[in-house]
Simulated assay, not measured.
Amino acid sequence: MMKIIFIFFSLVLCSNAQSKEKYYCLKSKNDVILLVSSQYPDVNHIKYYPYFKNIKISKPVKEESIDMGDDAKPEVYRKMNEIINGKITGYYTFMSQGYLLYNVEYVNIKNKKKTIFEKNDLQVKGSNCI
């Protein structure tokens, strides 16, 4: 009985901890939802909804800043490798301006398929979207 109670409280605590973290929730045309921690650019993983499994990404391997003119923050593009089982399987290019993340392009290295994720006002169950 004590094991069941312990498991129940562990699950409740895990789900509460997961829902308190804030994410940029970005959606593709195929309705795939990418979750990027609000700590961006200081992140080392991303997640996909509804799985919430951490997918490791590298520190930026390339960074480019584009001046947007007077009184505008530059657009910043950061390329980070996706690492699964110790191998680079793809890469993400994140586009932000100021402190906001606007879109992400993912390229699968094996099949060269590109997926574009764009910031949307999403409500994602089990996640706190910003």
Rank of each mutant, 00 (worst) to 15 (best):
Val36Ala: 05
Ile55Met: 15
Ile66Gly: 00
Lys125Asn: 08
Thr89Glu: 15
Thr93His: 03
Lys113Gly: 00
Ile46Arg: 02
Asn108Phe: 07
Ser37Tyr: 03
Ile55Gln: 12
Lys20Met: 12
Ala17Lys: 10
Met95Val: 11
Lys79Phe: 00
Val32His: 07
Lys29His: 09
Val104Phe: 02
Met95His: 05
Asn30Cys: 02
Met68Thr: 09
Thr115Cys: 07
Lys114Gly: 02
Asn85Asp: 15
Ala72Lys: 11
Gln97His: 03
Ile109Ala: 09
Leu122Ala: 08
Ser19Tyr: 11
Cys25Glu: 04
Val36His: 04
Lys3Ala: 15
Pro50Asp: 15
Asn44Gly: 12
Asp121Ala: 15
Glu64Cys: 01
Tyr51Trp: 08
Val107Gly: 01
Leu26Glu: 00
Gln97Asn: 14
Gly98Ala: 13
Tyr91Trp: 10
Met1Glu: 14
Lys20Val: 11
Met95Ile: 08
Tyr106Asp: 02
Leu11Gly: 12
Tyr99Asp: 14
His45Trp: 12
Ser58Arg: 09
Glu64Ile: 14
Val43Cys: 07
Gln39Val: 04
Phe94Ser: 02
Asn16Val: 09
Ala72Ile: 05
Ser19Gly: 02
Pro60Phe: 04
Lys114Ile: 08
Lys119Cys: 00
Asn81Thr: 05
Asn16Gly: 06
Ile116Val: 08
Ser19Met: 12
Val124Lys: 06
Asn54Ala: 15
Cys129Tyr: 06
Phe94His: 05
Thr115Tyr: 08
Ser28Phe: 03
Val124Phe: 07
Leu100Asn: 14
Phe9His: 02
Gly86Met: 05
Asn44Arg: 08
Tyr49Ala: 15
Glu118Gln: 11
Lys73Gly: 03
Lys110Ala: 15
Tyr48Asn: 11
Val43Pro: 01
Tyr77Glu: 07
Lys22Trp: 00
Leu34Trp: 01
Lys53Tyr: 14
Ile116Cys: 04
Met2Ile: 06
Tyr92Ala: 03
Tyr49Ile: 00
Lys22Arg: 10
Asn85Phe: 09
Ile46Gln: 04
Lys3Asn: 13
Phe8Ser: 10
Val36Met: 05
Glu21Ile: 07
Lys62Gln: 13
Lys59Asp: 12
Asn103Glu: 14
Asn120Gly: 01
Glu63Tyr: 02
Gln18Tyr: 05
Lys53Leu: 13
Tyr23Ala: 02
Lys53Phe: 10
Tyr102Trp: 12
Ile66Gln: 06
Met2Asn: 08
Ile4Met: 15
Gln123Arg: 08
Lys110His: 12
Tyr91Ile: 04
Leu13Met: 07
Gly86Asn: 08
Ile116Lys: 09
Tyr23Arg: 04
Met80Tyr: 00
Tyr24Cys: 01
Phe9Glu: 04
Lys59Cys: 02
Pro50Phe: 04
Asn30Ile: 03
Asn108Trp: 04
Lys119Asp: 01
Ile55Asn: 15
Leu26Phe: 02
Cys14Ser: 13
Ile109Tyr: 15
Tyr51Arg: 12
Tyr106Ala: 03
Leu11Val: 11
Leu26His: 01
Ser28Trp: 01
Tyr40Val: 09
Cys25Ala: 07
Tyr102Ile: 04
Asn111Phe: 08
Ile130Ala: 06
Ile116Leu: 13
Asp70Ser: 13
Leu35Gly: 07
Pro74Glu: 09
Leu13Thr: 13
Lys59Met: 13
Cys14Asn: 06
Tyr48Thr: 13
